[in-house]
Design a protein around this nucleic acid. Structure first.
Lengths: 141, 141
DNA sequence: GTTAATGCAAATCGTTTGCAGGTTT
DNA sequence: AAACCTGCAAACGATTTGCATTAAC
C-alpha cells in the first residue's frame, strides 16, 4: 500500500514542507475510514509546522483532489471532507448520531439501476455513483 | 396527486401570502424533476409578491423540510436544492455537463449492500440511502 | 534565475439569526 | 391579547482569491 506522500512524490510534485506535512497527516491517519475536514487537517498540520496557513491547506487539498489522489466527500452538511482512499471505489456509511463515516466497498454498485434510469432519462450515461447510507453505528444504537 | 399547497393546508399551516406563494412556486413547476435552489424560489416568488424577503424564503423552505413536505437535496456543490417530490423514495441523476437533475425511482435500493455493511461496520443499522448517479444526459452526450 | 508555492488578509457566497414591527387566530 | 410570521440588516462559516514574499528546482 503506497502512502499518499509516495504517490505525490511519484507524480513529480514539488514537495514543500507544507505539502509533505499535509500528506503525512493522511498517512498517519491510515488508509480507510479517513474523512478529514480542512480544519482537521489544519489542526494536525499546525501541530507539526506551526506557520502553515489555512489557505495553503485549502489550496493543497484542492490540488490533491484535482490530481485524483484524494477524494472530496460531501455527506450533506456544508463541509467538505477529504478521503485519501482512492484505490478502491467505495461509498459511505454515515452515523446520524455521532457523524462517524465508514467506507463500504462498492463492487456491488447496482448495474440494476441502469434499467430504471433508461426508462426515466433515456440516453443518460452513468459514469459514477455516490452512495451515502445513513443510519446508526454500533456505538450509537 | 396532491399539490404542496394542499398538503401544507391539510397540515394546519398558517397560510400566509408568502407561504402560499412559495408553495405555489413548486406546484407550478410540477411534481418530478424539480430541484430549485433558494434563489430560484426567491426569484419566482418575487415575480408574484415583490416584497417577499430572502430570509422568509429560507425560513419557509426550512420549515417545509422539517415538516417532511419538501426534501433538501445536496448534489455535491455547496447549494441546497429543494424537491417537493416526497411521495416516492427516489434518487438523483446529475448531468455533469449541464447540471440538470433527474429523479430515479428507488424500489431497487440495494439491500444487497447490507451484507457488505455488516462486514465493514458490524452493528450499523441502515435507515436510508442517498444515491447520486453522475454522468451525461441525452442532450449533453 | 525561473517558476511555482506560501501566507496574509480581504472577499465571496450560501445561509442563519436577532429583533422590531406587522399579521393571524 | 397571544402566538406567530415577516423583513431588514448584520452575522456566520466554509472556502476562495489577490498579491507581495519566499522557497524549490
Amino acid at each position: 500500500m503506497e502512502t499518499l506522500t509516495q504517490r505525490l512524490t511519484g507524480r513529480g510534485w514539488r514537495m514543500t514542507a507544507q505539502r509533505r506535512v499535509i500528506a503525512r497527516v493522511f498517512d498517519a491517519a491510515g488508509a480507510e475510514h479517513i474523512h478529514l475536514t480542512a480544519d482537521d487537517v489544519l489542526e494536525r498540520a499546525v501541530a507539526v509546522l506551526p506557520e502553515i496557513s489555512r489557505a495553503t491547506v485549502y489550496n493543497t487539498l484542492g490540488e490533491m483532489v484535482d490530481a485524483g489522489e484524494v477524494l472530496a466527500v460531501n455527506v450533506g452538511d456544508r463541509v467538505t471532507r477529504y478521503d485519501p482512499n482512492v484505490a478502491k471505489t467505495h461509498h459511505h456509511l454515515v452515523c446520524e448520531v455521532c457523524s462517524s463515516i465508514f467506507d463500504v466497498q462498492a463492487e456491488v454498485l447496482p448495474s440494476a439501476n441502469t434499467a430504471d434510469v433508461a426508462a426515466i432519462a433515456p440516453g443518460f450515461v452513468i459514469e459514477s455513483a455516490d452512495v451515502i447510507f445513513r443510519g446508526r453505528c454500533a456505538c450509537c444504537r
